[in-house]
Design a protein around this nucleic acid. Sequence first.
DNA 1: AAGCTACGCAACCGCTGTGAC
DNA 2: CGTCACAGCGGTTGCGTAGCT
Length: 274
Amino acid sequence: MGRSPCCEKAHTNKGAWTKEEDQRLIGYIKAHGEGCWRSLPKAAGLLRCGKSCRLRWMNYLRPDLKRGNFTDQDDELIIKLHALLGNKWSLIAGQLPGRTDNEIKNYWNTHIKRKLLNRGMDPHTHRPISAAAAASGLTAASASSGFPSSPAAPTSRLANVVYAAPSSTVSFARPSPSDDTHSSSGGSSDGPRCPDLNLDLDLDLSMSLPCSPPKTTPPPASTLTSPHHHHQQSICLCYHLGVRNGEACTCKAVSPAGQRVFRFLRPMEEGQYI
DNA sequence: AAGCTACGCAACCGCTGTGAC
DNA sequence: CGTCACAGCGGTTGCGTAGCT
């Protein structure tokens, strides 16, 4: 069908961007705005793939980017969000204005991992290393408890998360463990699995979460799959995180065709994390 | 001063979900 | 309804540089 390839890779530059290229990209986006990355390079006179332009803009040239060191508060927030979300860097970045997913990913790999290791915590599981090591060779039952040995932020961490909004405290609790076949462990119900993990996240919920719940009446707490997406068996992350009925959740509503409603995540396989 | 190593960051690669055709 | 391109994401790589020997 009639679409041309995204870019001619044979005639594109690679590697570090020059100042001139940056200026061209900035100038073009200032004049025309973001979007249509495919046609942008040609229009802007850049010998770059559109994908590369987008990356450069998003990660480096955007005017709203915050440069400089991460604060300790940032560190702690990233740690907590990672415990909650796993390697969902874009979601984590969404809670840190001015930071990019790439930046946070790099920062995690270079700084925070070490920081957690120094604390005796496994950066993957957020558990004490000894416990994490023990868990790695566990029975299927414990493996399904949401703390696999592989890099994972188990669903069960979502249990009993309390979000403290600045203006009004909103507390969400996960569905009961028995309802959740993915997370399975029941989180806090069977004792402190993450003794060092303080999930009292002070998240500013005015910063919109990356997706929103359905406008229709949400399914029972036990049903995390989307009512509109049987074929995908997907879930809304916000919903998964406990956001209900539009609370702090700004994703798109149901389309007329009832198709894409909001952004979904696949349901978790056993031992998988969100 | 030169060589080596480790680290940090920018950029690339490959994959996936979504919508257009 | 199937195919394809686009946009976006996470993992990985490569290069520049700081620190050490």
